[in-house]
């Protein structure tokens, strides 16, 4: 780690074991289960996410990461279980209310609003807009002042993300990486306390990756907590204060990046998932990555098990509760 962040320092004394308590949790999850047919996609006994930290959620394909995100943010309903955000219970709270409470997510398949301009995408993120009510909408005097304020805030954020020059482009005209950036900036317009990023770097070219990473790293300094799903171990090792590993719906390990990388259970989980392609992952590469993570600039696709099976391979594709292999 370049310099231990405040959050990393706060987590220094926490025992790296699944379900461990944190000093200042913002999200607390208990006994959450979700199954599809016979397949248990998520089965989390207890999990706490530390406030102000960057926590990454990793795990092999089909581990249930995206389903877990969907459950936490109200986009899917668990079979049972409770979880609370800032002490507020969130079971049965609809997705839009979860967002208003300050927990905002992004999507693995980017949802840039294609036929809205970049600026409109941003403006949409602001909450409590008077002009969003049907009758008030008819009277611009009610909302125009607030609109100006929101626009200023959007301009500021766009400048911070180096996107201000494309504010009039349509969302659909942006490149994949720019969309990811836009989606993140738009999420920040909600002024959330916690952002949940589902694979923010997937499909982004290396030049933009660095920029995205910097923005993610910055978020805690704006008082935000970050939970993100990522496949690229370099990224995970680089920016996380804490790493949670899921496999087959369960939390199998959690701890600081280095501790997790050395956890034999984690290595087992990944090897079990690997389709016999030795070059893609070995315990050694994981250990090396952990050790070298401070210096990492270029990326090696270690653990990037994101590619689907080779064409013509009939037997490999398995049931995949996250739909991850079709990204």
């Amino acid at each position: 780690m370049a310099e231990p962040t405040a959050a990393a320092a706060a987590l220094a004394d926490v025992t790296p074991e699944p379900g461990v308590s944190k000093p200042d949790p913002i999200l607390v999850v208990d006994e959450v289960r979700r199954s599809f047919g016979g397949l248990t996609a998520v089965n989390v006994d207890h999990l706490e996410i530390q406030r102000g930290a960057i926590t990454s959620l990793i795990g092999p394909n089909g581990a249930g990461k995206t389903t877990f995100f969907n459950l936490m943010t109200g986009f899917d309903r668990p079979d049972r279980g409770t979880w609370s955000f800032n002490g507020q219970p969130l079971a049965n709270v609809p997705a839009h209310k979860v967002a208003r409470l300050g927990m905002v997510r992004t999507f693995q398949l980017t949802k840039a609003l294609t036929r809205l301009s970049v600026m409109e995408n941003m403006l949409l993120g602001a909450t409590q807009q008077r002009g969003e009510r049907f009758l008030s909408a008819l009277l611009p005097t009610i909302w125009s002042a607030q609109e100006t304020e929101i626009r200023a805030r959007a301009d500021e954020l766009l400048a911070r993300f180096n996107m201000d020059y494309m504010r009039d482009e349509l969302g659909g005209e942006l490149s994949g990486g720019q969309r990811k950036l836009l989606e993140m900036a738009r999420a920040l317009m909600v002024e959330p306390e916690m952002v949940m990023l589902d694979e923010p770097m997937a499909g982004v070219n290396p030049a933009l990756t660095q920029s995205l990473l910097t923005h993610v790293k910055d978020l805690p300094s704006f008082g935000m907590t970050v939970l993100f799903v990522e496949h690229d171990m370099d990224v995970v090792m680089d920016i996380s204060d804490w790493v949670i590993v899921m496999a087959q719906g369960k939390i199998i390990s959690e701890g600081p990046p280095a501790a997790v990388a050395a956890d034999p259970q984690v290595i087992d989980a990944y090897i079990g998932e690997d389709h016999g392609d030795e070059s893609r992952f070995t315990p050694t590469t994981l250990a090396t990555t952990a050790a070298a993570s401070t210096e990492t600039v270029g990326r090696s696709p270690v653990l990037d098990d994101h590619e689907g099976p080779a064409t013509g391979d009939v037997s490999a594709p398995s049931d995949d509760p996250d739909g991850e292999s079709h990204a």
Binding site: G308, P309, T311, G312, D313, V314, P317, H326
Partner: peptide, 8 residues
Amino acid sequence: RDLAESSG
């Protein structure tokens, strides 16, 4: 559909 396609 995608899966079917990739299965030949």
